[in-house]
Design a protein around this nucleic acid. Sequence first.
DNA 1: AGAAAATTACCTACCGGTAGGTATAGTATG
DNA 2: CATACTATACCTACCGGTAGGTAATTTTCT
Lengths: 203, 203
Amino acid sequence: MKIKKTAGSPEPNARERLLETAIDLFAEKGYAGTSVREIVEQAGVSKPVLYYYFKSKEGLFLAILDIAENLQKDLLAGVLNSTGNVLDRLLILYRRVYAGIGENRNLYKMIHGLRSGPPQGAPGYDFTRYHRHMINAIHKIYEAGVDGGEVKKTAADEVAYLVLSLIDFCLHMDQVQPQLSDPQRPERLLRLAFQGIKKGMEN
Amino acid sequence: MKIKKTAGSPEPNARERLLETAIDLFAEKGYAGTSVREIVEQAGVSKPVLYYYFKSKEGLFLAILDIAENLQKDLLAGVLNSTGNVLDRLLILYRRVYAGIGENRNLYKMIHGLRSGPPQGAPGYDFTRYHRHMINAIHKIYEAGVDGGEVKKTAADEVAYLVLSLIDFCLHMDQVQPQLSDPQRPERLLRLAFQGIKKGMEN
DNA sequence: AGAAAATTACCTACCGGTAGGTATAGTATG
DNA sequence: CATACTATACCTACCGGTAGGTAATTTTCT
């Protein structure tokens, strides 16, 4: 009983290749800017194969987004298992996210582009979910710090926005201006935000 | 005789209408997602009119970006004429930017989408210029504060990134999740960043 | 066990429709 | 009459999607 076809079969199957190729192309040129012809050509399959596995260009697109959301869910679940003080845990959050993005660069790039840009003819999809998941995670970490008396009790919401804003910004920089990017910057900005900018706050 | 447009011609001319319509559509659906047919139809002109004033879809696109950059240049020049302490001037910066965006919502939306997303088949254009202009302005404001002994001397660059990150983030929210947006948030976040998050930093 | 039927996984060739862009012929005004 | 502007009609290339077929595997029936 064969497990798969021709036991060797080292190359990923057509479905897998289509997903990977589509992620790359959508990330690079956007949804409307990428034709199914390009995708199937670069994936080395024929057009109906795409329509066989996903039933349309939109179906392929949505399958990719499904993968992405599961990745984020798993990642954040892992982060929330961490222990330590607020700053440490926020840094863990950032590092894991950063590492996750490094492993799926183009997937993140694609999401990022669609999250902040026009739909480009792509099917309706609520991209704010990724944002909400992040805010929720930061909120939980911060609340643990409030309970432990480590950080100010006030304005947990505001802090979540502040933290996410600088993480988001650094990831954005990394994406858009990699030559100016610096993986250490979020850590510095987080410390800066913790200590305050004003003179006399040197701690 | 045909009653076309009478001498007065109070309505914006075709060129103007094309620009406005294109901004709206590019903002809403992206560059690749918008066809020249849609643009000319909605602008109430025929296709060759577009090719007469701008010589291609790309030409129209670049003309819009030219307008946008001049708007930003003028706005930042005005902000740098302001006086006061660092926080006040940063708030002025934010408020002017926010007001400017309010007056040209779709123009900003279009830039924002292209700045953080894939080119969508749009002609090459360095969108990082907008970012650089902002960083420069914040930097100048902050340096004035350092000279006046108002803020920490260290890490002027980092502060510029911190400030821009939260302004950017709030504008992004305003764009992407207006229901969660709050024009007052940047002001609160700026104050929070100035004072620090850590307990004992209450000022 | 072995033939028949169904399912899986892919192909070539082509569809109607629309994309960006243009050739040509006007009209209005200085 | 020349320049600026606008309309009709049309071009080719490419778009997303499909019709119809096939080779190979798996399932069902006897």
